[in-house]
């Protein structure tokens, strides 16, 4: 029966081929594609602003000198606690250090921690989810119970427990935040893997004798990447908030180094007299998280829906 079907297959499929090729949409030219991108962005000024903010933050993280050439740890004491002005965009702190320079240079430490946190969560959670979804049976059961356990402890307390065990520092804070968000990645990755595993093309690949790990690498991973990346962008925003909270509590880099959270903690002592010390770094964090969240929404199907 199957043999018959297989033998009948090729002529049948070649028979329908000309018909289906007519129905295929003509691939858009480069100009049309550019036109579509511009129209898409033109209708979403918020998304354009969000992209620019993220771009600026990335420049600040990788080349802080380009945005703020000064030294973040050197100040002119005579100029201490000056409100924002043309010379000091975000004002100066109690040692006369330029807050704008410190925020720009702080981006690199804060973003480094965020990237590590998301990477830890993505790699560990992704692997757990992939394994659970692809192997199934008892492996799935066991791994998903581990994930449930991680979800039963509030994230910030799990991070605090990890910091108690590991100690202070930017990297340790990053790992603590990352481990606390492993669970969501594992869940999404597992759901995607199971969806793809049941699809016809994976069945077809198995039917022609493709090895399991080749199927995993060629079919499952590329197709699961989309939703997992959308989650990664969303988690990036959450991780910025979590990292800065822990840094605010004083578990991050030791004092002279600028970090977004610890900058706000420093400014807290001057809240009554110098509002800019807290307000400016906080607005920077808020703008970054808002922008990242906006981009994550755009990636989550907004492009394909806007035809």
């Amino acid at each position: 029966m199957t043999e018959l079907l297989i033998r009948e297959g090729p002529p049948d499929s070649s028979g329908t081929a000309p018909g289906s090729s007519v129905a295929l949409p003509i691939p858009p030219t480069r100009r049309e594609r550019l036109h579509r991108v511009l129209r898409f962005l033109g209708r979403r000024p918020g998304l354009v602003v969000a992209s620019l903010v993220v771009l600026l933050v990335l420049v600040a993280a990788f080349a802080p000198g380009a945005l703020a050439p000064g030294d973040p740890n050197v100040g002119v004491v005579a100029d201490k606690l000056r409100p924002p002005s043309a010379a000091h965009l975000f004002g100066t702190d109690y040692l006369g250090r330029d807050v704008y320079t410190r925020v720009v240079h702080g981006a690199s430490l804060s973003l480094q921690a965020t990237v590590i946190a998301v990477a830890v969560a993505l790699v560990v959670g992704g692997l757990l989810g992939l394994l659970a979804g692809f192997v199934g049976r008892w492996v799935d059961e066991a791994l998903m119970r581990v994930v449930d356990v991680l979800l039963s402890i509030p994230a910030i307390l799990l991070s605090l427990a990890l910091i108690t065990a590991l100690g202070y520092g930017t990297i340790k804070v990053a790992i603590a935040v990352g481990v606390a968000s492993v669970a969501s990645f594992a869940r999404v990755m597992r759901a995607e893997t199971m969806r793809i595993r049941r699809s016809t093309y994976v069945e077809a690949a198995r039917a022609v004798g493709t090895r399991r790990y080749v199927t995993l690498w060629r079919h499952v991973l590329p197709n699961a990447a989309g939703p997992v990346l959308v989650l990664a962008v969303l988690e990036f925003g959450l991780a910025i908030l979590a990292v800065s909270s822990l840094s605010f509590l004083g578990y991050g880099a030791p004092p002279p180094a600028p970090e977004w959270g610890s900058l706000i903690a420093e400014g807290r002592n001057y809240l009554a007299t110098s509002w800019w010390l807290c307000a400016m770094p906080g607005l920077t964090i808020a703008a970054t998280v808002l922008s990242v969240n906006r981009i994550s929404r755009a990636l989550d199907g907004e492009w394909s829906r806007a035809r």
Partner: peptide
């Protein structure tokens, strides 16, 4: 709501202190 979840909690607290207390 999407604005509110993007703000750092500790910063919101400090800004509230700034405005309503100081």
């Amino acid at each position: 709501p999407s604005l509110a979840v993007s703000l750092p909690v500790f910063w919101v607290g400090l800004m509230l202190v700034q405005v309503f207390a100081f």
